[in-house]
């Protein structure tokens, strides 16, 4: 029974981790930019959900429809106005740029929302389902379904749409994509916009489950990083595999060694993967 509960928890958390990591992985893979502001994007999305709920009574699952377009514009504008100016520079330059962006965004959020933790509490509460002793809170179930839906939507966009194909083409061979008439800088901006949408939406889903504070942005960022290393950079399926693996390790680890050591365990695994299998579980060239 305990095993079933740990597994179901890991499944829920794993899909959320995948959702957190997927935008990060896309931006890293396509633009070769390690977006250190990704964690703050997630927190901003969570605040968006909190605010929409408490100010207008808009439930988080509807809030996605508002947050997603806003984050696309936000991400697109950042890439167009700031990052595209230095995109050709060595990776350290873009890294420093996103680090600065993260500091800025994080402190703005501390200024407006304070660093205190707050929780989006649905009223009335949605309750929980139990299947023969395994308890699943309904809000978590909703988050799971939405996380999977978002992941699947991104997969379909990248595989089936004209712009999605262009994003994959730019990732695979920038010069060849240019020869097809692809405007690489505009594709960069779209990819960064999609990365921001995934971060913002992941934040909305996290708000359903976890308390919100600007201070947790680093935790989200490191989760995204670990998932990318475990699953392998550059594919939706890799992010999903990495997310599930990370959640499983944390779940099993906290049962065996206690919650304090579970996170440590995931970082030990990160180091092992970097040494033994740096391309990750599903790592290969091409974002699919």
């Amino acid at each position: 029974m305990l095993a079933a509960q740990v597994l179901i928890n890991a499944l829920v958390l794993g899909c959320l981790y995948a959702c957190i990591a997927i935008g990060f992985s896309l931006v890293w893979g396509v633009l070769n930019v390690i977006n250190l502001a990704h964690g703050s994007f997630i927190v901003l999305g969570a605040y968006g959900a909190w605010w929409l709920y408490h100010a207008f009574g808009i439930a988080p699952w509807y809030a996605l429809a508002i947050v997603a377009p806003l984050f696309f514009v936000f991400g697109y504008a950042i890439q167009r106005s700031i990052l595209n100016q230095v995109i050709a520079a060595p990776v350290l330059v873009t890294l420093t740029m996103t680090f600065g962006l993260d500091l800025l965004l994080n402190n703005v959020m501390i200024y407006f929302f304070t660093a205190d933790f707050r929780k989006l509490t649905l009223s009335p509460p949605v309750g929980s389902l139990s299947f023969g002793g395994v308890v699943v809170p309904v809000d978590r179930l909703i988050a799971l379904v939405l996380a999977l839906a978002l992941t699947f939507a991104l997969y379909v966009i990248l595989r089936r749409s004209r712009t999605g194909r262009a994003i994959v083409a730019v990732r695979l061979d920038r010069d060849a994509a240019t020869l097809m008439g692809v405007d690489v800088k505009s594709i960069y901006a779209i990819a960064f916009g999609i990365g921001a949408v995934m971060a913002g939406c992941a934040g909305v889903l996290m708000a359903l489950i976890f308390p919100i504070s600007p201070l947790v942005s680093t935790a989200y960022l490191t989760k995204a990083f670990v998932v990318c290393v475990l699953g392998g950079l550059g594919s939706v399926s890799g992010a999903l595999a990495g997310g599930l693996l990370l959640a499983l390790i944390e779940g099993v680890g906290s049962v065996l060694f206690g919650p304090a050591l579970a996170t440590t365990l995931s970082f030990v695994l990160l180091i092992v993967f970097l040494v033994v299998r740096p391309q990750g579980l599903m790592g290969r060239k091409g974002f699919e």
Binding site: A169, L172, D173, A176, A177, M180, K285, G286, F287, E288
Partner: peptide, 19 residues
């Protein structure tokens, strides 16, 4: 050649018609 290796043949051809 500079094909998009991980993409299918048909998707490669469709990339040619991108514009």
């Amino acid at each position: 050649r500079r094909l998009f290796g991980a993409m299918s043949v048909e998707d490669n051809l469709l990339m040619g018609a991108y514009l």
